[in-house]
Design a protein around this nucleic acid. Structure first.
Length: 276
DNA sequence: AACCTCTCCAACCGCTCCGGG
DNA sequence: GCCCGGAGCGGTTGGAGAGGT
C-alpha cells in the first residue's frame, strides 16, 4: 500500500508561494518559533502542508540566509566538502552558514558539476575523468597547482582543482572508498577532523580561501573559532526589504525586527511585485 | 517581434532517520 | 524490539526568464 500522505491533500495549496503566504509564515515563526511543522499551516492560517512550510522557511525565508551566488571561496569549500562527504548536502550546508542544502545542491548541479567536468574531474569521485590525460591537461593542472603555493597542508582539503584529487590519500581519516560510502563512525572522525581543518584555515591567513572569505566585500562573512563562517548581521542581507516594500502596513517591526533598511533585494522585490 | 531552446532554481515527492510510546 | 508519526534529506521536476535565431 502507498504511504500516508504527509498531509491532507484536500485543500492543500501547492506551487509558488505568494508574498501574503510568506508574510503569514514569517509572522507565525517569529511569534511562535519553529515547532511541529505539521501544525504550522493550521496555526498560521496557511493552506499548505507542513513540509512545504518548513521548506519555504529553511530555504527562503530564514533571516540568516545569504542570497546570491556562492562566492568562489564558498564554492571551493563546497567542492572540498563534497569530495569528503558526497551528496550529503545538508552536512555540506551546515558548514556554510547562510546557505541551504537546496541552494548548494542546485549550485552544484548547475555550476560546479559542469566546471569540474570541464576541468576533466569526475564530479562524483573527484578523480580525473580520464586517468590518461593529455599532456596539455596535465600541464594545465600542474600550472594550477603552482599558482596556489600557499595552500600546502590546508590545500589538501580546500583546493578544488587538485586538492580534491589528493585529499583522499592525504587525509589519513578518509576512507579509501567513495565519499558517499563513509560509515557513520567514520563520519564522526571526519567531522572532527573537519573542524580542525577549518581552524587551520582560519589560522592560516595566507591561505587564499581564508583571504577570499575575509576580504570578500560582497558578503560580510567573518570567521569564528568554531570553524564555521559567521553569518553577517541581518541588516546586511536585506532579506525582508522586498516585504517591506511589498506591503508597508505589514509592519515588519511587528515581527520584532528593527534592523531592516530600505535597500531592496531586487530578486525578491520583482517576485513580490509579480505576485501582486 | 515571435518563436525556440537552454538554464536555473524554487518547490515537490518519496524515502530514511529518529524519537517516543 | 517493534510500531508509528514527524522531521529531515536528497533526487527530481516544472515553470520562469534569458539568450539565440
Amino acid at each position: 500500500m502507498g504511504r500516508q500522505p504527509c498531509c491532507d491533500k484536500l485543500g492543500v495549496k501547492k506551487g509558488p508561494w505568494t508574498a501574503e503566504e510568506d508574510k503569514k509564515l514569517i509572522n507565525f515563526i517569529l511569534t511562535n518559533g519553529q515547532c511541529c511543522w505539521r501544525a504550522v499551516p493550521k496555526l498560521a492560517g496557511l493552506r499548505r502542508c507542513g513540509k512545504s512550510c518548513r521548506l519555504r522557511w529553511t530555504n527562503y525565508l530564514r533571516p540568516d540566509l545569504k542570497r546570491g551566488l556562492l562566492t568562489q571561496a564558498e564554492e571551493q569549500l563546497v567542492i572540498d566538502l563534497h569530495a569528503r562527504l558526497g551528496n550529503r548536502w545538508s552536512k555540506i550546508a551546515a558548514r556554510l552558514p547562510g546557505r541551504t542544502d537546496n541552494e548548494i545542491k542546485n549550485h552544484w548541479n548547475t555550476h560546479i558539476k559542469k566546471k569540474l567536468i570541464k576541468m576533466g574531474i569526475d564530479p562524483v569521485t573527484h578523480e580525473p575523468l580520464n586517468k590518461k590525460e593529455s599532456p596539455e591537461d596535465q600541464k594545465n593542472l600542474q600550472q594550477q597547482q603552482e599558482e596556489e603555493p600557499n595552500n600546502k597542508e590546508a590545500n589538501n582539503n580546500n583546493n578544488d582543482n587538485n586538492g580534491d584529487l589528493n585529499s583522499e590519500e592525504n587525509n589519513s581519516n578518509s576512507s579509501s572508498s567513495s565519499p558517499t560510502e563513509n560509515s557513520s563512525s567514520g563520519e564522526e572522525s571526519l567531522l572532527l577532523d573537519d573542524s580542525l581543518m577549518m581552524n587551520d584555515l582560519w589560522m592560516d591567513h595566507e591561505n587564499p580561501l581564508v583571504d577570499a572569505l575575509l576580504w570578500d566585500t560582497t558578503t560580510t562573512t567573518t570567521p569564528n573559532v568554531e570553524g564555521t563562517l559567521t553569518v553577517p548581521c541581518w541588516e546586511d542581507n536585506n532579506n525582508y526589504g522586498w516585504l517591506l516594500d511589498f506591503d508597508e502596513d505589514i509592519g515588519v517591526q511587528d515581527f520584532g525586527f528593527n534592523c531592516f533598511n530600505n535597500e531592496i533585494d531586487h530578486h525578491h522585490h520583482s517576485n513580490a511585485m509579480q505576485k501582486l
